[in-house]
Amino acid sequence: MTRATMTPLAISPPAIEPVSLAEAKDFLRLLANDEDELLGTLVTAARLMVEAASGRMLINQSWRLVLDRWPAGGEIRLPFSPVGSIAAARVYDAGGSSQVVPLSSLALVAGTDPPLITVSGPVPAPGRERAAIEIDVVAGFGATRDTVPAPLRQAVLRLACRWFEHRGDVVSRDATQLPAEIAVLVAPFRRLKL
């Protein structure tokens, strides 16, 4: 039996960044507004880098998990955390029509890391070989900046400001590995693979 594949797809980004433009400008002691767009872009890029390095989504955002089939054991381990809720689920038949999966048939197991969804009730059988099941989830520590752990917020702030102050080569160097002073902030939250 071949293993079912899972593909995570971002549906919608967070409504806000974990670090505001004002916080970044204060940290850099910037008074002018002429580089706000650049700094805002760097904050977003820094959040994405910290999320990738830690395996944690910082501010609530919507993701879709696409599976070929239901797992044999009825357990779906998610590739990122934390996950706060299951928003919707559907199964596709051979003709491409979708059937809604009742949310009562799926359970997000509290306190698991990586997050775990279990099939806890009847679910429709997939009607096609690939990308037959979609499960939409909300991932993140919360909808506001104060729900994000302070070290992760600090990592985003410092990384964005580092890129702003040292434009050029530093960004391409940091793309392969977080700088040591930022990696130490992320390390306690990094999801380990055993």
Rank of each mutant, 00 (worst) to 15 (best):
A110Y: 06
V43G: 12
I135M: 07
A131N: 14
G168E: 05
V138S: 10
I133L: 12
A139G: 11
K25D: 08
V156N: 01
G40D: 13
I59F: 02
H166F: 12
R77L: 14
P14L: 01
T144C: 07
L78P: 11
R29A: 15
L159A: 01
A110D: 14
T5G: 14
R128F: 06
A110H: 03
R145Y: 05
S98G: 13
E35W: 00
V91C: 14
A46T: 04
V186W: 02
A4P: 14
P122L: 08
A10D: 11
I59W: 06
L21E: 05
E23M: 12
D68H: 04
E23C: 07
G121S: 02
D36P: 07
G55P: 05
S54H: 04
W163N: 02
S97R: 13
N33H: 14
L157C: 09
R153T: 04
M49F: 13
D113Y: 02
A24H: 06
L28M: 12
G55Q: 05
A15L: 14
P115R: 07
P151F: 01
L39E: 02
D68M: 05
P8V: 02
W70V: 11
L116A: 08
R145E: 15
A125F: 00
N60S: 15
I182T: 09
P8H: 05
R153G: 12
A143Y: 01
M1D: 12
S104D: 13
L48R: 13
S104F: 03
R167Q: 14
P149W: 00
A94V: 13
V186P: 06
L42C: 12
E23I: 00
S98Y: 09
S120Y: 01
A4W: 10
A180W: 06
I16Q: 14
L108R: 04
P114N: 02
A94F: 04
G84I: 03
D136Y: 01
P179V: 04
V101A: 11
F80R: 11
V91M: 11
A132L: 07
L178C: 07
G140T: 03
E75A: 15
R190H: 04
S104H: 00
A155R: 05
V66Y: 05
L58C: 13
A52P: 03
G121K: 03
